[in-house]
Amino acid sequence: MNTREQQQFEYLLRLGDSDLILGQRLSAWLGHAPVLEEEMATGNVALDLVGQARSWLSLAGELEAQGRDADRLAYFRDAFDYRNVLITERPNGDYAYTIMRQFLFDAYHYPLLQQLSGSAHEGIREVAAKSVKEVEYHVRRSSEWVIRMGDGTQESHQRIQAALDDLWMYTGEMLTPDDVDDALLEAGVGADLEQVAWSWHDRVRAVTEEATLTLPDESWMQQGGKQGRHTEHLGYILAEMQHLPRSYPDARW
């Protein structure tokens, strides 16, 4: 791959890995969600995200042209080769924590996909146009829950405020462009993260205000997921997710 292709490959991994890791995290709620409706909603969102991950990773594999398909990329890479944003690997915590993590990611994911629906790259355009319709439902649900919990009981308010405070330092990475983001934006292929950030701030401000939550002060932000520097949690997620195909590499359904 030349430099331009290498950057596109990195970009596709970021899109795919963030979807995959969050989808995997959400799947762990199956059988444990607080109410049946939420059990199904969480499962549905996880399914959408894993499906989208498959589309992005397939594109990455085609571009790389080394014979790696979506499954190969998902199951046979180690943590340092993963490019998901750090917020997606945060542990599920209580349900307020899961909902707040989802909301902060959805509020970024939705405008990101809107932008990518106009990408100069045909494959990216197609996957984004498909995914944005699904994510519109995700962001509406997570926004509703943030409001319901924030403006709910004292207990729910306290829990979701604590989640917001804890997750805040993982939000900067999503909205801060690096060399790869800049190069793809310039080529008309990638999203303009400055505009994504505007949209994210607007939504986060409006929803948290209605939820009677207090936004944390500007503080130091974590970075590194997009470059392959992860928290200790990712290794455990991969160990569980990759166990079967690594132990039985030829296993088929």
Binding site: M40, G43, N44, R140
Partner: peptide, 13 residues
Amino acid sequence: RTSEFGSTACKAM
């Protein structure tokens, strides 16, 4: 509406 997500991806409850 009870939930925007149902027994399959394409349905709400």
